[in-house]
Design a protein around this nucleic acid. Structure first.
Lengths: 329, 329
DNA sequence: GCTTGTGGTGGTAGCGCTCTCAGGTGTGCG
DNA sequence: CGCACACCTGAGAGCGCTACCACCACAAGC
C-alpha cells in the first residue's frame, strides 16, 4: 500500500514542472504578491497536470490557521450529539467550511466542566468553534486565543457573537394562534431551564398568559420526545381541563402527542398541540404538526461564515420565525 | 489548570520546562523508544502544567498521517447530506475519531463523477474515508494512496471492506411478519435502484413473494418521506386491493402512512405499513411503526475503527437486523 | 549621475513535530 | 582488561508550506 509513485505532488514538484521557484508557485496558487501572466499560466497548468492539492496541514502549520472547526454542544451527557438539530448545524457548517479546506468536528461540551474549551484554545488544529446550547459560564470560559473565532448558536456575550432564532417571536406567534382558536388553558412544556435562550419563549408564554388573564401552567422538558411524553402525562394529571399544549420543540410535541393519544386524548379535538422547529417530520406526522419555523440552516451558515471570516463581534442576530399552521392546533 | 497564556505551549516549551531535550519529550508523550521513569514523570508534569496539546497539523505533516476522515456520501445531489442516517454515521465516526485527534468531514460524492475520490487521494489532509451509498464505479475510483484507509457502509469490494446491516435478513423478518399476520398483497416501496445493497432487500422480497405465490408489486422510492408518499399513492391507484406496504426505510414508511391517511386509508386496519431502520421517531409516530432495527451506530463505529486502524481488508461484515413489532403492522 | 518606484523573482527561515542516528552510561561476562 | 548489550539521551534532518527579504531589470524624475 502506498507506492512511491502514488505520492501526491508537492508545491516543489509543481514549481519544478513549471520552471519557476517554489516561492513564485506559492504566489500564483495563493493569489498574493506580484506574478507575471506567463508564470501564472505555467504554474496553473503544472498544478493541473500533477493533480496538485495543497497540504492543509503544512499550510496550517506555517500560518497557524488551524484546520478544523469544532461544533461544541453543551449538555449534561453526550446524547446531545444525537440531536437532529445538532446534525443540521454540522451538515450546514460542513458545507460552508469544505471549500475552505476546513473540516468540522462534533464535540460534547460537558456543562458541568467548561474546561473543554480550554483544550480547544490550546489545540492549534482548531481554527474556531460554534457553540450550541451554551451557558454564560461556557461563554466566559472561551480562551483568549479563540477570541473572534467563536460564534454561539443561542446565547451570546460581549465577545461571542450570537446567532439564534427569534424564540420569543416564534413562541408568541404560536401561542397567539392557540389563543385565537379558542384555547384558554394552555400548558407549556419548556426546554431545559438552564438554557437561557430557551427561557425567552417561556417569558413570551408568561407574558401572553398574563396579558390574556390565562392561568400559567409550566412543565419542564428538555427538547426530547421521551421527556415530552412524560411531561404531557404529568400535566394531564395536574390540570385535567387543559385544552392545549405548547411544546418548546417539535420532538417534544411528538412525544406529547404520542402520550396523549395513548391516554385516549384526541389531538386536536380534546387538546391542541403545537411545537417549535418545523422539522421535516412535522409535515407528515399524524396529525401534521402546527409549529413555528426554525431556520437552522441559515443560522448555522451565518455562524460558520462568521467564524471563518473572523468577523468582528456583531450584536446578536435573530432570525425570524413564522407560524406554520397544520392540523394539530 | 495552568496559566491562560495567549500562545499555546509547544513541545519545546514542555521539554525546556522538564529539563530534557525535545526528542525525549516527544518519546515520553508519544510513548515510543526508551525513557527513564524520571524523565517520564517530569515531562508529563510539564505537559500538564503548560496545558500542552500536540499540534496535529505538525504531526500530520511529518508523519504524513492526515488529520481528517471524510464521510463521502454518494447521491445525485447534495441533499443526501441532510439524511438523518448520514448524520448518525457522522456523529458516531466523530466520537470514534475524536480521541485520535482526527476530525470528521462530510462530503457529497456525485455519483455521476466519482473523481471527487481522486482529489481525496491527493489531499494529504485526508487520512481515510468512509463511503456511504456507494456504487461499484466509486469503489473502483478509490485512489492507490487511500487503499486500506477506506471503508464502505454498504457495498464493498476486493480492496474496500464493507460494513452493512443484514438488509436481506431484516427485510425477510419484516415481510414474514406481514405474511404471518395475514397480508397477501404486499407492495414494496424500494430504495434507490442503483444502490446495490438496497437491492438485496428487493431480492428478499421477490423470493418471499415467489415462495408464497404472492403477486410481486414493486414501486421505486429513494428512502425519503416525500417520495414514499408519492409511491404510496401510485401503488394505491395501480393495486387498489393492496393490504400491506413494506417500505425500504422508516422515512419512506412515514411518507406512505401520511399519504394513505390523507386518502382516508386506515393503518393498519386497511393497509399495514412496515419500515426499516427503527428511527427514534418510529416509536412515537401514529401509529407507532413496525420496522426492523438498523444498528447504524455500531456499523459506523466499526467502519471508523477499521479506517483508523488501517486494518487489512476483511470480508464484508453484516450486522444483524431484528424485527420490532409495533402497531402499524 | 543618483534616487525612487514598480513589477517580478528566487533564496530561505522557520512553523512544531517525529524519528533516525550517533553517542553516551552503566551493567554482566569471558 | 576488553567486549557485548541494555538502557537512555540530545542533536539534527527534514515534512510542505508561507512569507519575509534581497535582489534584478527597467523607467521616470531630479
Amino acid at each position: 500500500m502506498g507506492s512511491p509513485t502514488a505520492r501526491p505532488a508537492t508545491l516543489d514538484d509543481v514549481a519544478r514542472d513549471a520552471g519557476v521557484s517554489r516561492a513564485t508557485a506559492s504566489r500564483v496558487l495563493g493569489g498574493y504578491g506580484f506574478t507575471s501572466a506567463d508564470a501564472r499560466t505555467r504554474v496553473r497548468a503544472a498544478a493541473e497536470r500533477l493533480d496538485y492539492v495543497p497540504d492543509l496541514a503544512a499550510r496550517a502549520l506555517v500560518r497557524g490557521g488551524g484546520v478544523r472547526l469544532v461544533v461544541a454542544v453543551g449538555g449534561r451527557d453526550d446524547t446531545v450529539l444525537d440531536d437532529p438539530y445538532v446534525h443540521r448545524v454540522v451538515s450546514t457548517a460542513s458545507r460552508v467550511c469544505a471549500p475552505h479546506g476546513v473540516g468540522v468536528a462534533l464535540e460534547w461540551l460537558p456543562l458541568a466542566d467548561p474546561s473543554g474549551l480550554t483544550r480547544l484554545g490550546t489545540d492549534r488544529g482548531v481554527c474556531g468553534a460554534i457553540l450550541v446550547n451554551t451557558t454564560q459560564a461556557a461563554l466566559d470560559a472561551v480562551p483568549p486565543r479563540l477570541r473572534g473565532r467563536v460564534a454561539s448558536i443561542g446565547q451570546g456575550s460581549a465577545t461571542v457573537p450570537s446567532f439564534d432564532v427569534d424564540n420569543a417571536g416564534g413562541a408568541g406567534e404560536v401561542l397567539r394562534h392557540l389563543y385565537a382558536t379558542g384555547r384558554r388553558r394552555i400548558v407549556m412544556v419548556t426546554g431545559p431551564r438552564w438554557l437561557s435562550c430557551a427561557e425567552r419563549s417561556v417569558t413570551a408564554y408568561r407574558e401572553l398568559m398574563r396579558e390574556t388573564g390565562s392561568p400559567e401552567r409550566l412543565v419542564t422538558g428538555d427538547f426530547t420526545a421521551a421527556r415530552g411524553g412524560r411531561a404531557a402525562l404529568a400535566a394531564l394529571r395536574r390540570w385535567p381541563d387543559a385544552d392545549a399544549v405548547y411544546a418548546a420543540s417539535d420532538a417534544t410535541a411528538f412525544g406529547v402527542i404520542a402520550a396523549l393519544s395513548g391516554r385516549g386524548v384526541r389531538v386536536p379535538h380534546d387538546v391542541a398541540v403545537a411545537g417549535f422547529d418545523d422539522l421535516p417530520y412535522a409535515a407528515i406526522s399524524s396529525p401534521p404538526l402546527t409549529t413555528a419555523t426554525h431556520p437552522v440552516d441559515r443560522i448555522a451558515a451565518a455562524a460558520a461564515t462568521a467564524v471563518l471570516a473572523r468577523a468582528p463581534v456583531a450584536p446578536s442576530t435573530a432570525f425570524p420565525s413564522t407560524l406554520v399552521t397544520r392540523q394539530s392546533a
